[in-house]
Amino acid sequence: MRILCAALAASLAITAASAAATLDTVRQRGALVCGVSQGLAGFSNPDAQGRWTGLDTDICRAVASAVLGDAKKARFVPLSSKESFTALQSGAVDMLTRNTTWTQTRDTALGLNFVATIFYDGQGFMVRRGVGVDSAEQLDGATVCVNAGTTTELNLADYFRARKMRYTPVVFEKSDEVLAAYQAGRCDAYTTDQSGLYAQRLKLQDRNAHTILPDVISKEPLGPVVRQGDDAWFDIVRWTVFALINAEELGVGQTNVDGMRTASADPRIRRLLGADGRAGANMGLDAEWALRAIRQVGNYGELFDRHLGKASPLMIDRGMNRLWNKGGLLYAPPIR
């Protein structure tokens, strides 16, 4: 009974506490908690030592270094796609960097805010070579393995319905289970974002026996997500991403960033690296927020190469993900 009284007191005390802004929460905690995928090569994947690597995890590290001064203060919580939105809404994580597709419903009805696109992707199919399929149009009647609760699952349904083709979806929680089932022959095709297909194909033992079909059946702009209603935090994450893209455009990279801050006369670079202007102060951060992010993780181009592009085992072509002035879609507003 005394316990119950104590519980009563505790519950009243808890109600008295009020909601805090994400930035304050993160600072108080001294760590940034990011929801990431449970293992997707190139985006977020734990290596043998349990260290998370990939484009998504480095975006999180960049925000951690901008806000907390240290990329090591980023913490990663692996989430299934099913858990991810609830985890963000509930405050279990500060932001999602888990190759999440930006859609209208998610942006509005789910109480989420999409920050920026860090990877332009599209959904594709992987099939075994030698089954005589070289276009997605030939998949009528196929069994397709897919991740639960993703836009992929919905695009798949749309695609087949629009073409009056039949299909059987087999829906798993984790990407690893999807792959295991595809490998075991449960499905004729495996569908997810093309980058994901390239990444997953690496895990197959006989990877040359599988081919990725050229068809792209959807638009998949992937990017970080924050909760709706905290504009200050939204700005910080968004401009950290823009800083990395601007850095590539301005030729500022991990190796030359420190020299550039003092040596560069380019006002755009000086504003980016905090030598001039109030970019950091405008967001409640210090002047070197972007400098640290670039020094500790690199600019966007370096990230892409390291995790997805030519320096990675995935060897994905930059394609749409080139800068706007090189024929791609990446276009970050200026910092000034």
Partner: peptide, 15 residues
């Protein structure tokens, strides 16, 4: 659990 508390929950977000 798989269809309703899985896929539907995720699409609608009505946890």
């Amino acid at each position: 659990v798989s269809v309703f508390a899985g896929t539907v929950l995720n699409i609608t977000g009505q946890a």
